[in-house]
Amino acid sequence: MSLWIGEVVANFLVAPDIYRMRLRVDIEEPGPGQFVHLRCGLRYDPLLRRPLSIHDFDMDKGEIELLYRVVGKGTAWLAARVPGDKVSGLGPLGRGFILPSGKTLALVAGGIGFAPLFFLARKALALGNRVIFYLGVRSREHLLRQKDLAEFGVQLEIATEDGSAGFPGLVTDLLAAHLRNLRFDGIFACGPKNMLAAVAGLAATYSIPAQVSLEEHMACGLGACRGCAVPVYREDGNVTYENVCSEGPVFPAHRVVWKPSWR
């Protein structure tokens, strides 16, 4: 059964509007890129669960970590939780990243897209991969867990939009510059849709297989309601819809239809 009640172990502000929560839960071992679907309150507003990607997992303690930005009623409720509080959750859900071993990998995170890629970096290194982690944030105060990543043995490349740390500009521009000289066996990305589309473009240009984690408004989380469906290419080139919750959230970048409408 992957419907559970978790107990908050810690929940604290780590950057402007960004919280890190540790939750003690009895769940099967999650993979990087999978998510949990949390009920945010006991009443009808907010009504639906909120999908949060798994930031880390500690098998010995039986704890998952979540890193989330407060954007609305649901995440505001989560941010107000204190140790000992209970949270209803579903998961781990979805299909996560598929990692190779012994390769050179680029991880590309934009903003809160850092959350699942931290977990991915740790797992990637455990499989003997070399990891270069491209992290794009608005400003230096949004940089998180640099020390942890360095201790793991990750090569961190930072881009800030305001130029307050690292490369001044978009993380995808930094990645594009590096791709002229570096060879990667795989690219793994999570972040805003524009960033993912740019990563997919670069991956196609350099013929590097890429996996991207998508976001969409979600209801059931179980693949039943088709609410979080996104257009993707089938093998025959025609477009179909697949659920972010059950067939994703991670998709091969070349399968994603990046501009499905006038949006």
Partner: peptide
Amino acid sequence: RLGNLPPRVVETPAGLLNSIGLQ
């Protein structure tokens, strides 16, 4: 049926607005 363009669901106060489109 493929269904409608995303986003297909959005939460409203104590409610859910959907436009799945009979996928």
